[in-house]
Design a protein around this nucleic acid. Sequence first.
DNA 1: GAACCTATTGTACCGATGGGCAGAACGACG
DNA 2: CGTCGTTCTGCCCATCGGTACAATAGGTTC
Lengths: 208, 208
Amino acid sequence: MKHHFITTDGNMKARWMEAFPEASSILAEQGSDAIGTGDVAWLVTMIDDWPLRVGELAQRGATVVVLSYSADDQEALLAFEQGARGYVHTLAAPEVLEQVALVVTNQGIWAGQALLSKVLSGSFQALRQRHAGEPSLSAPLLGQLTERERAVALAVARGASNKEIARQLDIGERTVKAHLSAIFKKLAVRDRLQLILKLSDNASSRTA
Amino acid sequence: MKHHFITTDGNMKARWMEAFPEASSILAEQGSDAIGTGDVAWLVTMIDDWPLRVGELAQRGATVVVLSYSADDQEALLAFEQGARGYVHTLAAPEVLEQVALVVTNQGIWAGQALLSKVLSGSFQALRQRHAGEPSLSAPLLGQLTERERAVALAVARGASNKEIARQLDIGERTVKAHLSAIFKKLAVRDRLQLILKLSDNASSRTA
DNA sequence: GAACCTATTGTACCGATGGGCAGAACGACG
DNA sequence: CGTCGTTCTGCCCATCGGTACAATAGGTTC
């Protein structure tokens, strides 16, 4: 496993050498033939078509880390979209670079804290909606319920109370509870709150 | 910061002990009281309601890593959806586990390569849309709330109970109720159910 | 300083919720 | 015919959720 630093001028930063004394320097104009599967390619964003290069390298089986002077979330996401495994500041300390290498070569990713929290908190929502269109999650969710349970589940998803559901379906409130208990168990949620969240996550693509 | 391995049988794998000699073993049936804020909770998917446990632990401020025998993207996604910071194979080597711990305790996430490309490429488009449009999904709604009320509202939107919110914000359950009453009045909803629906409605109508 | 907002917590009440235990009716399957 | 799954219901009980009626304390505004 080798380290390659791909730059526009072929100049290696001192701290790069410090972190990886064996690393090679590659000019952006050069081809990527010297980079093999499993190698780590460090690529700076000074290169005009760096996103393309990232994709190309990732395709070849290289582990790509993008080095950027800016801490731009959009840029980072673009990098990851192209298949990069890491996104680090160009001026990162040698110890950090070693840490990054350790992580990315072991199936991890490396990105800034701010970006990660965004990805985890916000974008997963959208991603789940994307997956919801497939018959993988949404259909099996309601599909594993009986007809009556499904009716109750949908009523709950609208925010109805047990009493309201009972009236709507013309059954006793106790029966609604019974159905709900079955639903909770089947869908592995603890209460109607979680059920709403679970359902709305998978239904928003169809109701919206 | 402690490491806790939560399993169905209480049996710790040898490599777990190797990676974290100080780690404790917790039975799935047991409560999570021994796990504190900042601790790392390693949770196996053998546990029936592991998604729920993940959410619960994450809510408590623990750093959750899901251990699974299968490398299932959907499962991993579910894990992260519930607030897990890592998703790693149950049979991962001790060195890998240590790396995972290092990453997740530093605000990083850990997941398999295949999933990451999916997640990040999806997130990229989601973030891009979001940044192009309004700054926040339900900004107008949350904007009329105080900082504390907003925190409570967001916790409710995740499906948290009053007790969980109290733990999370380190305040009394009674105080949570007080904030909730204020929220209900301001947003003109009758209960947390409607609040969730109102917040999620606002989110989907904007992205659609 | 008074008025006001915010955050915090208390006691108490009551309806809503979830589950345990139990039973009955019905259709399907073997 | 017996078993199983589904639907429906009863009673009881523990907990949760929301609110009314308070109080204390730290800020800001006028």
